[in-house]
C-alpha cells in the first residue's frame, strides 16, 4: 500500500509530473479559497449576519485570540501566516473522510515545506519587527559561546516540526491500512474518526508552535529581556 502521496503520480507531461501531494494541495486550496470567496462576497457589517459569515468570523477571531494568547501585541500581523497554517492543515486532515483522498500533510514534502516556511518566517517576522542587527545578536545570547547551539536549536526545531506533523498524519494512514488488513469494517471507521481528531489537534499544535517560535524570536530583542513563553512539551499529540 502507498503511504507516501509523493510517489503517486497523477499526471506526467514532458518530464513534469504532478503527484498526488500537489494535486490534493490544490484541491484543498481550491476548497478554502472558493468557500472564503463565496462567503466573503456577501459580507454584512450590519446586524443580520449569515451563518457562514458567523462561522468564518468565529474561526478568524479564534485564531486571532490564540495568537494573542501566545503573547504578541499585534495578532493581526501574524494572522495570515498562522491562520493559513492552521486552516490548511486542518482542512487537509478533515478531508480524509472523502474516499480516495490522500491528505497532503501525510507527505514529508508538505510538512517539510511548511516547516521551512516557519523556519523562514521566524527570522523574517523578527527582523521586520526589531531589525536585522538585533535579530542576529539574539544568536549570541546569553553568550557568544551559545551561537552554535542556537543555530542547532533553530534547525532541529524546524525538523521536529516537520517530522511531528508528517509522522502523525502518516501514522494515521498506516494504522488504518494495518487495521484494515487485520480487522476490516469496524476498526478502520474508528481510526478514521480518531484521524479526524488528531488531524485537527495537529493543525492546532503546528500553528501554535509556529506562533510560539515567532513570538519567542521576536521577544529576544533588546527591549524584551524577560524569558520567552515556555514551549509546549515535545510529545503532545504523538
Amino acid at each position: 500500500m502507498d503511504i507516501n502521496p509523493d510517489t503517486w503520480i497523477l499526471l506526467d507531461w514532458n518530464g513534469w509530473h504532478i503527484n498526488a501531494t500537489i494535486a490534493f494541495t490544490w484541491g484543498v486550496m481550491a476548497v478554502l479559497v472558493v468557500a472564503s470567496w463565496l462567503i466573503t462576497a456577501r459580507l454584512s457589517d450590519g446586524e443580520n449576519v449569515s451563518r457562514w459569515q458567523v462561522m468564518l468570523e468565529v474561526i478568524v477571531t479564534g485564531i486571532r485570540d490564540q495568537i494573542a494568547e501566545v503573547g504578541t501585541e499585534t495578532p493581526g500581523r501574524y494572522l495570515p501566516f498562522i491562520g493559513t497554517l492552521f486552516l490548511f492543515i486542518a482542512t487537509a486532515n478533515i478531508l480524509t473522510i472523502i474516499p480516495g483522498y490522500r491528505p497532503p500533510t501525510g507527505s514529508l514534502s508538505t510538512t517539510s515545506a511548511l516547516a521551512i516556511c516557519v523556519l523562514i518566517a521566524v527570522p523574517l517576522f523578527s527582523i521586520t519587527q526589531q531589525g536585522l542587527g538585533s535579530y542576529l545578536r539574539g544568536y549570541l545570547r546569553p553568550s557568544p559561546f551559545m551561537l552554535p547551539f542556537n543555530i542547532l536549536a533553530e534547525a532541529t526545531r524546524t525538523i521536529a516540526l516537520a517530522v511531528r506533523l508528517y509522522g502523525n498524519v502518516m501514522s494515521g494512514t498506516v494504522i488504518a491500512g494495518i487495521l484494515l488488513s487485520i480487522a476490516p469494517f469496524f476498526f478502520p471507521v474508528l481510526m478514521q474518526l480518531l484521524g479526524l481528531l488528531t488531524g485537527l489537534i495537529q493543525a492546532y499544535i503546528f500553528a501554535v508552535l509556529a506562533m510560539v517560535y515567532i513570538a519567542s524570536a521576536s521577544r529576544a530583542g533588546p527591549h524584551h529581556t524577560h524569558d520567552p513563553a515556555p514551549e509546549p512539551s515535545r510529545n503532545e499529540g504523538e
Binding site: V60, P80, G83, A113, L114, C117
Partner: peptide, 25 residues
C-alpha cells in the same frame, strides 16, 4: 514537491489574505 508546496502555501496565504482575513476583519 517541497518547492511546489512552499509556493502553494505562499499562494494560499495570499489568496486567503485576499478573500478571507481582510474582508472578515
Amino acid at each position: 514537491t517541497i518547492t511546489a508546496q512552499i509556493a502553494n502555501f505562499l499562494v494560499l496565504i495570499w489568496l486567503l489574505k485576499r478573500f478571507l482575513y481582510a474582508p472578515i476583519t
